[in-house]
Design a protein around this nucleic acid. Structure first.
Length: 848
RNA sequence: GCCCGAGUGGCGGAAUUGGCAGACGCGGAGGUCUCAAAAACCUUUGAGGAAACUCGUGUGGGUUCGAGUCCCACCUCGGGCACCA
């Protein structure tokens, strides 16, 4: 009985199913389910207006995973929320003279509407907004726990101050010398700020990267770079008295990875900001030059100061240190290429072993004593047995090779030198014995500066009392609420808003002042994935039971821009929670997928200022959400960037409509109640059945790998075959069980990607009840996917000369016989050395 | 300078363990239907060649019966770190 195939009306069916899912709470994650759990998570957005294409891609990937996992029998936790604190809200409020909260909540509503319009299967009952007091209370709680453990502290040091954002920044937020948010070049300011002691976890954050086998290599590499572990030694140099030769009791310690070059020290270096340098030159003839250098460094921006190509500047201090091994004095210089906050803030200058020191020595005419050489170097021949420093200068144009053999190096002469060499070990051992040096591991990672001089953030729950110092807010007083009636339009800040900062000291009861800094928004996003496990808990940030049940995140999906920032902070936060006994795992995210960027048709990043933004609504409108999701997942592998291409969307729409017609066409004869008897099928039916299994297996495997573009192409192939079957086989000759099975498979396999399309066909074309997402993923049979006749390629010495059809179960001898026959003219009169047979694939005849 | 990736048709891309390179889609060409167009459907589409066949996965070598895939050297592009001692 022929039915008219209804037209595919995306808007109508999408609206219909979105309402059904909402009403039925189809995607609620049940804590008490018997099914195995799966936690699929996309990085939550900052609500700065409506969602853009990057979000659409991110969430389409996650949603396809979550929906497919549900069909594969998992109880899926797939939550969503908002990283709602942050500067853009505050700036918008200042500009429009309103409240940051109002702006933020409005944007979140807009974003939620778009998420629903895209058909994302979130459990909206678990929505987390970081600006809700119910949430940020527990961020304050965590801060206090860290304070108790000495992991949160206040310190005064030079920090990056962004003059446009009017706040300090973390090291991680200075990208290429500029503010990550606004691009302004930050100034260095000496300020009292709040830190989290992420450096306590540096080694573990590095080591545990090896556990993360489900993370992309480049993200792990970036984190390793950022943590920046160096093995080396600290070595104590004695400051010389003013005569320049007599050692004093005062020690200045350096950090070096090249203890083997200690005999080559010809000067000693301090950074311009060094208090010691200022002290040494105070009141001397060298002071004026020193102050001038210091001033010039302060005027150079962080952008200009970085880079190894920059010309170096330095001044002599008039003082010396004594080399602890040789007893030789080395002049102390101040140089602008030395960093105050790495190592000990003092460096030994070895011009023959380090290019930077070499450049410096050349410029200021300091000696370059050679202490390491290759065996084929004439210098090696000359000095290989020389223990004393006889040659004190050389005429090179470049520092020496990093590795070689020590010369003129006392008892260590002749040893192999270089990073991690025997000479390094020997010299460190020697220094340790004498108590003037020790092994030392140095990290590039600095503590996380979390205080921000901004309003729209989570208040630091501390009170400053003139008598008692910094006093924590008692737990029972949490949360410290952010007031919502500041006059932001007039530029009022928390520090100027007495109702907020006026308080009494919890310890002594005297009037005291609240800390008016708020926490970096990255503190809020460092644990939101834990809150989703137990979002309504008002006794604790989350229960141990809930965390044990849902964590870890099985699939975490987001942009590569968080490779260091968010992902490093979250790893740190998790380890702190573990040490507090809140969780029992070391790493929060088991598998990480970093999706590529969506660029415009020319390959440029989309941005409002360039005016090349393609809003998701412009695609949903004409084509529907399902088409958009399909196009986004099909156009490229998830981790690659792609350029927006309207033709791909049109193609996806063409396919979705063709698949729609094909399923309806199959449904015409389909019956879910008949049993499929493969043997009874006609030739076309048998082949379609085989292809269904073949493509089903391929599609399933591709879903498991998160490779959606090829999963879709497998469905396309099956749709092509099914449509060919409908063309060739008259409806009376179609098998009802087969057409049902094929239609059901197509619907199931496309449902994670085109969910409304899937539900509609599941109900209307196939006449089934319930949700397609409560139905199991179809089973496919490996045996049934095998063809009875297969094509085998026949090679002669590796070159394809023929293709033959053989029965799938034909014995090897038969296949080889047929192969030889097929390529007879290529092997005629030749000697067959060997025949290689790869079953089902090829025969290679080696004939000479 | 150090550390990660990646180079395949006109384009996006596929090839799961060393086994038929170019699946699937876009674009192109031809056709059916139509007064015409759109839509849809069918055929075709790596290059050269009439064909046999030859060439072909950044370049040059190597291993192998057989290499996009493994090894060596190099080139180009993208990304991270970087005056970090």
């Amino acid at each position: 009985m022929a039915r008219d195939i209804p037209a595919y009306n995306a808007e109508a069916i999408e609206t219909k199913w979105q309402q059904v899912w909402d009403r039925e709470s189809t995607f609620q994650a049940r804590d008490d389910s018997d099914r195995p759990k799966k936690y699929v998570l996309e990085m939550f957005p900052y609500p700065s207006g409506d969602l853009h294409m990057g979000h659409a891609r991110n969430y389409s990937i996650g949603d396809a995973m979550a929906r497919q996992a549900r069909m594969r029998g998992f109880e899926v936790l797939h939550p969503m929320g908002f990283d709602a604190f942050g500067l853009p809200a505050e700036n918008a409020a200042i500009k429009h003279n309103t409240q940051a909260g109002a702006w933020t909540y409005k944007n979140m509503d807009t974003a939620i509407a778009t998420m629903k319009r895209m058909g994302f299967s979130y459990d909206y009952d678990r929505l987390v907004r970081t600006c809700d007091p119910e949430y940020y209370k527990w961020g304050q709680w965590a801060f206090l726990k860290m304070w108790e453990r000495g992991l949160a502290y206040r310190a005064t040091s030079p920090v990056n101050w962004c003059p446009s954002c009017n706040t300090v920044l973390a090291n991680e937020q200075v990208v290429d010398g500029r503010c990550w948010r606004c691009g302004e070049v930050p100034e260095k300011r000496e300020l009292s700020q709040w830190y989290l002691k992420i450096t306590d976890y540096a080694q573990e954050l590095l080591d545990d990267l090896d556990q993360l086998t489900g993370w992309p290599e480049n993200v792990k590499a970036q984190q390793r770079n950022w943590i920046g572990r160096s093995e080396g030694a600290e070595i104590d140099f004695a400051l010389a008295a003013e005569d320049g030769v007599t050692p004093t009791d005062r020690l200045i310690t350096v950090f070096t990875t090249r203890a083997d070059t200690l005999f080559g020290v010809s000067f000693f270096l301090l950074p311009p900001e060094s208090p010691l340098a200022a002290e040494l030159v105070a009141g001397t003839e060298y002071e004026a030059a020193y102050l001038e250098l210091k001033k010039s460094v302060e005027q150079v921006s962080s952008v200009d100061r970085q880079g190894s190509g920059r010309e170096k500047h330095g001044v002599f201090t008039g003082r010396y240190v004594i080399n602890p091994l040789t007893g030789v004095p080395a002049p102390i210089w101040v140089a602008d290429y030395i960093l105050l906050d790495y190592g000990t803030g003092a460096v030994m200058g070895v011009p023959s072993g380090d290019q930077r020191d070499f450049d410096f020595a050349r410029k200021y005419d300091l000696p370059i004593p050679p202490i390491i050489a290759q065996k084929d170097d004439p210098l090696y021949e000359e000095l290989k047995d020389e223990r004393e420093l006889r040659v004190t200068n050389v005429d090179w144009d470049h520092a020496m090779d990093a590795e070689g053999y020590l010369i003129q190096s006392g008892e260590f002469t002749g040893m192999k030198g270089g990073k991690h060499s025997e000479a390094v070990d020997a010299i460190i051992a020697h220094l340790s014995e004498r108590g003037i040096g020790r092994k030392k591991v140095q990290f590039r990672l600095r503590d996380w500066l979390i205080s921000r001089q901004r309003y729209w953030g989570n208040p630091i729950p501390m009170i400053h009392c003139d008598c008692c110092g910094d006093v924590p807010v008692p737990y029972e007083d949490l949360p410290v609420r952010l007031p919502d009636d500041l006059d932001l339009g007039a530029g009022q800040t928390l520090a100027e808003y007495a109702p907020f900062y006026e308080t009494t000291c919890p310890k002594c009861g005297k009037p005291a002042r609240r800390i008016t800094d708020t926490m970096d928004t990255f503190t809020c996003s460092s644990w939101y994935y834990l809150r989703y496990c137990d979002p309504h808990n008002d006794e604790a940030p989350f229960s141990r039971e809930a965390a044990d049940h849902w964590m870890t995140v099985d699939n975490y999906i987001g942009g590569i821009e968080h490779a260091i920032l968010h992902l490093l902070y979250s790893r740190f936060w998790t380890k702190v929670m573990r040490d507090l006994g809140m969780v029992d795992f070391d790493e929060p995210f088991t598998n990480l997928l970093c999706q590529g960027m969506v660029k415009d048709a020319n390959g440029d990043t989309m941005s409002k200022s360039k005016g090349n933004v393609v809003p998701p609504s412009s695609v949903i409108g004409p084509y529907g959400a399902d088409t958009m999701r399909l196009a986004i997942l099909f156009i490229a592998p998830t981790e690659k960037d792609f350029n927006w291409d309207e033709e791909v969307v049109a193609g996806a729409n063409r396919f979705i409509k063709r698949a729609w017609r094909t399923v309806w066409g199959l449904a015409e004869t389909a019956s879910k109640d008949e049993t499929l008897d493969v043997a009874a099928l006609n030739t076309e039916g048998k082949e379609l059945f085989r292809r269904m299994n073949e493509m089903g297996i391929k599609c399933t495997a591709d879903f498991d790998r998160g490779q959606f573009n090829t999963a879709i192409s497998a469905v396309m192939e099956l749709v092509n075959d099914a449509s060919g079957y409908l063309n060739k086989v008259a409806s009376a000759d179609r098998d009802p069980a087969l057409t049902y099975a094929v239609a059901r498979s197509i619907v199931a396999m496309l449902s994670p990607i085109c969910p409304h399309w899937g539900e509609e066909l599941f109900h209307e074309a196939l006449g089934l009840e319930g949700s397609v997402y409560d139905e199991p993923w179809p089973e496919f049979d490996e045996e049934a996917a095998k063809a009875s006749t297969i094509e085998v390629a026949v090679q002669v010495k590796g070159k394809i000369r023929a293709r033959i059809q053989v029965a799938a179960d034909a014995p090897q001898a038969e296949v080889e016989g047929a192969a030889k026959e097929a390529v007879a003219r290529f092997i005629e009169g030749k000697d067959i050395k060997k025949v290689i047979y790869v079953p089902g694939k090829l025969v290679n005849i080696v004939a000479v």
